[in-house]
């Protein structure tokens, strides 16, 4: 009997803890937005962070995009040729990438490459009292450290997703047209006829901006909230990757449900 009561109490406690953490995270996020002035007034700070989260993620994004596009073309061709409609291969590759795989896979890679790095860096800065030192020097760490990283992530993510999709389509072209021999003209023209700028490309970009916000905000909060010990920082880094991956997939479902509801 008492075990049941205790486990119910445990659920209650964890719920309350979760809610208070959510509240803390929201306040942190709002503070970061409110104190973003420095990130724009001294844009050099943000450029530096774009280098660390964007440029350093380029290799993994480009290579993954190329391979994902190549595999899509290979698999798509197998299925499409059964129906004799190989010429829509371009459409298949482009739509899968632009609508879904580009934003989602790029965001997952970004979370594990840049998100974890942000959490580890901020967590270490906290553990080694660098944030406290900054505060004692009358410099607001949220404005000086958090906000530039946030905006850098928000700027980098759509660019990375676009590069991922573009590389993927290039990969699909390589396999589909150059290797298998699908007609080049119909590959591109069918793609252009079926991929719409607003419905597909713009919605993909919106998705990637939302994912960028989610991943960077989670990474920054986990780092800022990490216990100031080695275990604390490593645990926070793991949580960043897990939480932001789940957030990306859940948000993707919600956004897709909203965006592509009208057309079928």
């Amino acid at each position: 009997m008492s075990t049941i009561v205790r486990s119910i109490a445990g659920i209650g406690r964890r719920t309350l803890e979760g809610i208070s953490r959510m509240g803390y995270a929201t306040r942190f996020f709002i503070a970061a937005l409110m104190r973003s002035g420095t990130a724009f007034r001294r844009f050099g700070l943000t450029i530096r962070e774009i280098y660390f989260s964007g440029v350093l993620s380029l290799i993994i994004i480009l290579v993954s995009g190329l391979f994902v596009g190549m595999v899509l073309a290979l698999q798509g061709y197998e299925t499409l040729q059964t129906y004799g409609s190989e010429e829509v291969l371009g459409v298949l590759v482009a739509l899968s990438l632009v609508r879904e795989l580009g934003p989602v896979v790029a965001a997952l890679l970004f979370a594990s490459r840049a998100g974890s790095a942000i959490t580890a860096e901020i967590g270490l800065m906290k553990a080694t009292e660098q944030l406290a030192a900054m505060e004692m020097m009358a410099v607001d760490p949220v404005a000086r450290v958090v906000a530039p990283r946030f905006w850098a992530g928000v700027i980098s993510m759509p660019l990375l997703a676009a590069l991922f999709s573009a590389m993927g389509i290039l990969g699909g072209y390589l396999v589909g047209v150059v290797l298998i021999g699908v007609d080049e003209g119909s590959f591109w023209s069918q793609m252009q006829a079926k991929v719409d700028f607003e419905e597909d490309i713009l919605n993909g970009v919106i998705k990637s901006v939302v994912f960028g916000i989610a991943v960077t905000a989670i990474a920054l909060f986990e780092g800022y909230d990490a216990p100031p010990t080695a275990e604390g920082v490593s645990g926070a880094t793991t949580r960043t990757v897990v939480t932001s991956s789940l957030a990306i997939l859940a948000l993707d479902f919600v956004l897709t449900a909203f965006m592509f509801r009208g057309i079928s």
Partner: peptide, 8 residues
């Protein structure tokens, strides 16, 4: 600070 807390 105790261990300097230099910005790494």
């Amino acid at each position: 600070f105790q261990f300097g807390a230099l910005f790494t």
